[in-house]
C-alpha cells in the first residue's frame, strides 16, 4: 500500500492510513475464515475416519435369551466382527471394504496435514507483518484450541499421540517442518504457489477415489457418485 501511486487521491487526508486499516481488517477477517475452513476439514476427516472404522459388527452376549443381539463393541476377542471373513453384499469381505476406506483416509489425512502446513505458514506470515510475536510458530502447537484433541481420533498423531506426523506429498519422504524456511513477506509468486498447492489437492488422486466409489457402489448395489 505505501508504494501504490494514488494519483489525484493522494490529496485526501489520511487516505493511505485509512486504506491500510481497511486492508488490515480484511486480512484479519480472511485469516479467521481460513482457520475455520481448516477446522471444518478436520471435522470432516474425523467423520471419515470414524466411518471407516465402524464397519464391523459384533455379537453381544445375550445370556439365556434366544434373541441375538449385536453391538459396535467387541466383547469376545475371538469375534472379529466380520462374520469370519465371509463376503458381505456380493463378493467382498469386510476387510476388503476397510482397506479401500483406509486408502481414502490416508489420502485425505495426508492432504489435511499439507493444508495445515499452508494455514500455519500463512498465519505465521501475517502475524509477522503485524509485528505480533505471538502466533503459531511450531508444527507441534495447536492451530486452534483443542486441535490436537480433534486430530487424535484421525490417527494423525504419532508417538503416543503427542506428536503430529509431518506433512508429506503422496509417497515421497516426509521431512521435519521445523527445518523449513519461515514465510516472511512472501512475494506474489510464492503466494501463487501456496494457493495452487491449496487448490491442487496433491494427495488426493481423484481417479483412484472415483474408482473406489465405483467398485464399492457396484458391490453393494448403490450408486455412490
Amino acid at each position: 500500500m505505501p508504494e501504490i501511486n494514488l494519483g489525484a487521491l493522494k490529496e485526501m487526508p489520511e487516505i493511505r492510513s485509512k486504506a491500510c486499516n481497511k486492508l488490515y481488517h480484511k486480512r484479519e477477517h480472511c485469516s479467521t475464515k481460513l482457520l475455520s475452513s481448516y477446522k471444518g476439514m478436520v471435522i470432516a476427516a474425523i467423520d471419515l475416519v470414524k466411518a471407516s472404522g465402524s464397519m464391523r459388527c459384533y455379537l453381544r452376549d445375550s445370556g439365556s435369551s434366544s434373541i441375538i443381539k449385536y453391538s459396535d463393541e467387541q466383547e469376545d476377542p475371538s469375534d472379529h466382527g466380520d462374520g469370519g471373513g465371509i463376503p458381505v453384499f456380493s463378493c467382498f469381505s469386510i476387510s476388503f471394504f476397510e482397506d479401500l476406506a483406509g486408502e481414502l483416509v490416508k489420502m485425505f489425512t495426508r492432504e489435511l496435514s499439507l493444508k495445515r502446513f499452508l494455514v500455519m505458514d500463512l498465519l505465521f506470515s501475517t502475524s509477522m507483518e503485524d509485528g505480533r510475536q505471538e502466533g503459531i510458530f511450531s508444527w507441534s502447537d495447536d492451530l486452534y484450541t483443542g486441535e490436537f484433541n480433534d486430530l487424535r481420533s484421525t490417527g494423525m498423531l504419532v508417538h503416543d499421540g503427542f506428536y503430529l506426523s509431518p506433512p508429506q506429498i503422496m509417497d515421497w519422504q516426509s521431512s521435519d517442518p521445523s527445518n523449513r524456511e519461515p514465510l516472511i513477506s512472501p512475494s506474489h509468486e510464492v503466494l501463487q504457489v501456496y494457493l495452487t498447492t491449496w487448490l491442487a489437492d496433491l494427495n488426493i488422486e481423484m481417479n483412484r477415489v472415483s474408482e473406489i466409489f465405483s467398485v464399492v457402489g457396484d458391490a453393494i448395489g448403490v450408486k455412490l457418485a
Binding site: F117, P167, W172, Q192
Partner: peptide, 28 residues
C-alpha cells in the same frame, strides 16, 4: 502459472517438502 511453479525460489516454506514441485507440476 507453469513458469512460476517451475522455479524453486517461488516455493517459500514449501521447499522443505520433498516431491512438492513434481507433484504440483504433474497435477497441473
Amino acid at each position: 502459472r507453469l513458469p512460476v511453479l517451475s522455479e524453486d525460489k517461488n516455493y517459500g516454506g514449501l521447499k522443505f517438502l520433498p516431491g512438492i514441485k513434481e507433484a504440483l507440476l504433474g497435477k497441473q
